[in-house]
Amino acid sequence: MTSMIEPEVVELMERSNKHPSTAEAQLTEAEIEEIEREFSRYEDKASVGLEALRIVQKHRGWISDETLRAVSNFLQIPVAQLESVATYFQLIFRQPVGKEVILLCKSASCWIMGCSRLQQKLQNKLQIAPGQTTADGIFTLLETPCLGDCDKAPVMMVGEEMHRNLTDESIDKIIENKKAHHADQSPD
């Protein structure tokens, strides 16, 4: 019988079995303060799991195994329980992502209005497929379900910004602007 698990996953499992990562990450004071603020809003600490992951991700960009362990230690809940939450949500990143995460809507209204063609255009421009990050580390492209702006389809989100009624030209502009923005910010 062939394995149902994808080869990359098998590889990852083998690697982590051979070299289990034991490095202990610590939460920063700022992270702890923000997480503690959430405690008073819920009946128990375990309920803060997703909020805590989001807070830490905001500071670190993504959730590594070490970070996951640090959060689970802090909340005193099993790593497996927190992992089952972390892997459930598409906006919790268990892999490194670029500085700008692009969420391209692929749902019905955007599909009718031509998001597939725009996606091709975006992929050619960035030279990546969905789930990948550009070589310069700026953009990650993700396909996303309906973004709740269907009357302005096709749409995408870049970071926290919505971009509506997308065209070839507007996509070019959005990407160029972001590139320029990050070029300005890089130290040299």
Partner: peptide, 10 residues
């Protein structure tokens, strides 16, 4: 609100 084609609660 995530049902495809739904944009009212926003």
């Amino acid at each position: 609100e995530m049902e495809p084609g739904t944009f009212k609660d926003r």
